[in-house]
Structures are given as structure tokens and as C-alpha cells.
């Protein structure tokens, strides 16, 4: 799967949890999940679970700390799919 396709999938996954619709409309890979997109940290685990289901991967708990931005989330998915 290309990085562009992964970005679209990640956008689909995080959309229901985004608190700032305008930031979502202007989303880039650099967007911070909590600080920019205003995703409640309660939903970070939801996103982890949705990513695991969508890509049939398992995400380590320690890796959750690294899922700070859209880019780092895509990097994590790519590393698990390799």
C-alpha cells in the first residue's frame, strides 16, 4: 500500500474522533493528533484498536507513545506491515 493510500486510510480512521474539523480539513502528515486535531486522549486507544483491525496488525503499548502525529502513525503502520 502506498503512503498516500495509508494517509487516506488513517484520515478515515481518525475522522470520527477529531475535535477540530477545520484542522482536519487542513490535515497534513505533520498534524499532531492531540494538539492540532484535538483528539481526546481517551480516543487514542480507540484509534489504535481501529488501526489494528483495519490493517490486521498488533501495536505494542510502548509504540502508543510514538503515535503523536499523522506521520508517526503511518510510519508505525508501515513498520508493522513490513
Amino acid at each position: 500500500m502506498t503512503r498516500e493510500a495509508l494517509l487516506e486510510k488513517v484520515k478515515e480512521i481518525i475522522k470520527p474522533y477529531v475535535g477540530d474539523g477545520e484542522a482536519f480539513d487542513n490535515l497534513t502528515e505533520a498534524s499532531d493528533l492531540i494538539n492540532d486535531l484535538k483528539i481526546n486522549s481517551a480516543h487514542v486507544v480507540d484509534i489504535v484498536l481501529d488501526i489494528e483491525s483495519e490493517f490486521d496488525i498488533m501495536i505494542d503499548d510502548d509504540a502508543i507513545n510514538d503515535m503523536t502525529t499523522v506521520a508517526s502513525s503511518i510510519d508505525l503502520i508501515q513498520s508493522k506491515m513490513e
Binding site: 492531540i34 486522549s41 486507544v45 503499548d61
Partner: peptide, 15 residues
């Protein structure tokens, strides 16, 4: 976790 940040925790929330 919010209390821990005030005590110096600089990690993201990892339950």
C-alpha cells in the same frame, strides 16, 4: 496522568 504531567511526566498518555 494529568497529575503526573504536573509532576514532570513528559510522555504521551499511555494507560
Amino acid at each position: 496522568y494529568k497529575s503526573s504531567v504536573k509532576l514532570g511526566n513528559r510522555n504521551r498518555f499511555n494507560p
